[in-house]
Design a protein around this nucleic acid. Structure first.
Lengths: 293, 293
DNA sequence: GTAATAGTGTCTTTCAGACAGTATGAC
DNA sequence: GTCATACTGTCTGAAAGACACTATTAC
């Protein structure tokens, strides 16, 4: 009997709270919501993703949903070795607002995405994980090519850090055998996830970071009314970077992607004006987003 | 018996000749090379794509290969209506050099990709297809929302034309019922393709255009030695835009993505210096590409 | 008053686009 | 010489980043 194919859908559900981007995992395991694609039931792959989220999170309401990538390598599920079916998974990215996220059901746990990718957060200096990295790279003395590549994707030489290359960085560490999934015992390079779920999350993070500049996806994660500082902190948390306040403010104002509500919000210092997303930009500008760079 | 899933791979093979980007179709039909994913044989989805290309093109050698998107909507293959399996297709983009393309086997036909998307080529003014478009948009009088959206994605109002939005434009025309696949008899909006293959090609064109600026993929399509004019014409043909010669030249020179060979090439006018790709840029710059914008 | 955050204005550097003009070949 | 293409230098305006500074609250 020939080996069979089993088509599944896996979803990276993302929200932001307390300046921390979070990924939804099923309770007890570092595992993404996932399940079989059922053609008789699921009219589209995207609807399958919505169904699975609803079933496995106690009815979480998802706004934005986008296909990421399809993973089909042999032995990505080790059960294949002992005769299991070939599992091909279509990965999806879902964004949920902070309010909806709080209403998620019992069986789920929100995890800081930087728990899995500590080297991706450069908001605080010095980045402990990033210096550990420099050590690993230096130790790859045997392979000049690999070392140079590592310097590039990790921005260790003069070349600038590219926040979107999350998957490349993860795969390089996998290659070097320094992450737990590649067999490294007691790895300090982030917590492992089940199967290849960390690859899927890496893909999601890269996609979010790449898209934020030319699509208004941050607003899927924010409450309807927010201050510019809150907007900035949210973008910073996703990008893993600190941004210059005044410039960020000007950039956002120029693109007219938000408008004042007229309201104010108390803070520790001067109260902040509140803003809301301006959907009209979608009809005005071809690629409205929030600049990071 | 529940409906079964059949996983396939479909490939958009692209080359450029005579300032014309071309898509490989199987002879006699406007159909992409495609076939079943065979888990016992194909270690990865990408290897399945390579196998299918080799089998269906008389051994065409493919360099660059990249996953595009996975298509799984119900009834994307009409045979489903009469009990056929649900066909889920993973789309791939392949780039082949002009020399390899000439060596492709008997059963294939290279087709100008603008035969399927005439409105995407804005190198010559006026763009016949583009003005026809303006008419369709104006005729969508019933739906203000749709009309505004059309103006944006087709760049008909002040907003600038975004060359990457190929799929959005095709889907809008589908929505409006103006393409043959949506049932329009005698449509002037490009030649139809089999099933949803035109959607897949649209995805490929958008990907190529988006990637050209920050990855050196044009060089996959060019011969090893070329003039700057040839490089410019190739980029222009892919982007569907005319570029300013002197600025293009400066841009390319600054990024150090090419180097002189020392040779010259005869043309109708002054002979041109020849260049080659400089692989070292990959180690120097984080995102080397050829600027279009 | 101080501390803390919100917000404004200006300067500088970088880079994309426009443009004017020169160079080198075929004929 | 003309025609055609290759190539160079310079100007300009938009945008990104750095920075100095002011504003408004709590305490």
């Amino acid at each position: 009997m020939p080996q069979t194919v089993r088509l599944e859908v896996e979803v990276v559900v993302v929200s932001v709270a307390d300046e921390t981007p979070r990924v939804l995992t099923v309770a007890g395991e570092a595992r993404l919501p996932s399940g079989d694609f059922v053609p008789a039931r699921d009219r589209t792959l995207e609807l399958a993703a919505r169904r699975l989220i609803a079933e496995q999170t106690g009815g979480l309401g998802v706004g934005y949903l986008e296909q990421l990538y399809t993973f089909g390598d042999r032995f990505r599920d080790p059960r294949e070795v002992s005769g299991g079916p070939r599992r091909v998974s279509v990965g999806y990215l879902a964004l949920v607002g902070v309010d909806a996220a709080a209403a998620a059901g019992e069986g789920v746990v929100w995890r800081d995405w930087y728990a899995f990718f500590p080297w991706e957060d450069a908001r605080a200096e010095p980045v402990a994980a990033r210096t550990a990295l420099a050590g690993v790279v230096a130790a790859t003395a045997s392979d000049e090519r690999l070392r140079r590549w590592a310097r590039i994707v990790f921005g260790l030489d003069g070349s600038s850090w590219n926040p979107e290359r999350v998957l490349e960085r993860y795969e390089l560490l996998y290659e070097l055998g320094t992450v737990a999934e590649a067999g490294a015992a007691g790895s300090t390079f982030g917590e492992p996830m089940v199967l290849d779920h960390r690859r899927i999350v890496a893909t999601a993070i890269g996609r979010v970071r790449g898209k934020i500049a030319y699509r208004p996806i941050v607003f899927e994660l924010l409450p309807p009314v927010f201050t510019l500082s809150e907007l900035q902190r949210t973008v910073e948390s996703l990008a893993g970077l600190r941004l210059h306040g005044p410039n960020f403010r000007r950039l956002v104002a120029e693109t007219r992607v938000v408008e004042e509500t007229g309201g104010r919000r108390r803070t520790l210092g001067r109260p902040a004006r509140t803003y809301r997303f301006r959907p009209e930009v979608l009809a005005e500008r071809p690629d409205p987003g929030i600049g990071i760079r």
